[in-house]
């Protein structure tokens, strides 16, 4: 009788900026193609639906050892995940993620940001990180760190207008992401400073 196929090991989650990936170590069977299938179980399935599991069709009988589970981890509750291997008619037991995964633990990186001075206008270009993200942008006139102003940018569309600047003055900007669904923010980006056109006398 064929030896039992070993269950996948080292099952873990890589989660950054609300993109979640399940990974595991390959099951090595000489001369054979091993395929894997992934299932998930949310708190609802555990508590109210007889601990049922739901297959992820995009990760059914795949040969890779990574599965993008972002679409299914779409609530801020604890999820269980499991993987099994198949070689022809042979099938392994399920390998289950150690501990539950909640997207609240995703790691949030500061946003890529480019600050632009266009005449007397202060503008910022932000990276589109997906619908879950908002940006908290802080800006101030150099040497007036106590008079920081804030703008929350909910939708990223290339260049966002922040404010008008005094002629010749230097303004500094930094930004962080915020994800309402998990009520967490990233650390701030590096500060970037730009100078408005013209010289100070323009304002007198």
């Amino acid at each position: 009788e064929d030896a039992l196929l070993p269950a996948p090991q080292n099952i873990s989650i890589l989660s950054t900026n609300m993109k979640h990936f399940l990974t595991w170590s390959p099951v090595i069977i000489q001369g054979e193609t091993v395929r894997y299938s992934v299932q998930f179980q949310g708190e609802y399935e555990r508590e109210y639906a007889n601990e049922s599991w739901i297959p992820i069709s995009e990760c059914s009988l795949i040969t890779g050892t990574v599965c993008n589970i972002t679409e299914d981890i779409s609530a801020t509750v604890a999820y269980n995940l499991r993987v099994r291997a198949d070689v022809g008619p042979r099938r392994s037991e399920w390998g289950t993620l150690k501990g539950l995964f909640n997207r609240v633990t995703t790691s949030l990186t500061p946003p890529l940001m480019k600050v632009i001075a266009d005449g007397y206008h202060l503008l910022v270009e932000l990276e589109d990180m997906g619908p879950a993200f908002q940006f908290r942008v802080l800006y101030w006139k150099k040497a007036q760190e106590r008079r920081v102003q804030q703008k929350v940018v909910k939708e990223v569309r290339s260049v966002v207008h922040l404010d008008t600047m005094e002629a010749g003055a230097e303004y500094c900007v930094r930004a962080q992401t915020h994800v309402e669904a998990i009520n967490r923010s990233s650390s701030f980006s590096q500060t970037q400073c730009v100078r408005a056109q013209g010289d100070k006398s323009m304002w007198l």
Partner: peptide, 17 residues
């Protein structure tokens, strides 16, 4: 339908939170 079941799971778990 597997896709529909996954969306129902998403809604149900969002209802919990």
């Amino acid at each position: 339908d597997s896709y529909v079941n996954r969306k129902i799971s998403s809604i149900a778990n969002s209802f919990l939170s």
